[in-house]
């Protein structure tokens, strides 16, 4: 508390050109912060195998074809199911292996899927599916990852919000509309509706009071 007030006082005395200084100071802070964050990432997720890949890849930094991409993914994860003939490379992962898989494809520098474009929940008769659209901003790959929950009644899945921060909010939306609980989510709350509502995007949602059906 005290520290914040002191700093405000100093800035207040500055001349008009202090804007630049402030921004420089902030840049330094952000850099410092990102450095810490980066170290944490490497410490947690990159395995020794990936470090070798990192060195090899840095020389030939170019995009793979979709076939190469799928080949690399399936060789590392033999259980994953690949769908043929779809619009984008598409892979279905078991729900208990989702988090490890996601962490791997983000930290692996030859894949580097660092941009979560879209996260969707789809309700099927036996399970609820979560679809992740992922892009790599360095290689410009695009890929679809799918994960199914075990059942519809107690639908749970691991969160990926520690890997991509934007997932935190998409997951809240999915929880609100489809009722999937995400394990380890920092702040799972309903965004659009309050607690008295059901989950409207489920196929068995029925509401005589609010909905006029046609």
């Amino acid at each position: 508390m005290k520290r914040g007030r002191e700093i405000v006082g100093i800035v207040g005395k500055r001349k008009p050109d202090s804007v630049c200084k402030t921004s420089q100071r902030f840049d330094r802070m952000v850099n410092k912060k990102n450095k810490v964050k980066g170290n944490k990432d490497i410490g947690l997720s990159v395995t020794s195998r990936n470090k070798e890949v990192n060195l090899a890849q840095s020389e030939t930094n170019q995009a793979m074809t979709n076939e190469q991409l799928i080949e690399q993914l399936t060789s590392a994860n033999p259980d994953a199911v690949v769908k043929q003939g779809s619009q984008y490379p598409e892979i279905t992962v078991a729900h208990d292996k989702l988090h490890a898989f996601m962490q791997n494809i983000k930290s692996d520098s030859s894949l580097a899927f660092d941009y979560l474009v879209c996260e969707t929940g789809v309700d099927y008769p036996e399970f609820i599916q979560v679809v992740y659209h992922l892009e790599s901003t360095s290689h410009r790959h695009f890929m679809v990852v799918k994960a199914n929950t075990e059942n519809r009644e107690t639908a749970t899945l691991d969160t990926v919000s520690d890997i991509w921060p934007t997932a935190e909010f998409h997951e809240c939306e999915i929880y609100d509309l489809l009722g999937i609980r995400f394990n380890n989510h920092p702040n799972l709350r309903r965004y659009f509706l309050d607690d008295t509502w059901g989950h409207p995007l489920r196929k068995d949602f029925h509401d005589d009071i609010h909905v006029v059906e046609r």
């Binding site: 804007v19 990102n34 660092d114 921060p165």
Partner: peptide, 15 residues
């Protein structure tokens, strides 16, 4: 100027 800086890494991470 200098208000509300969003770094490139954060922009990608937050989509």
């Amino acid at each position: 100027k200098g208000v509300g800086v969003l770094s490139k890494e954060d922009a990608i991470a937050f989509g």
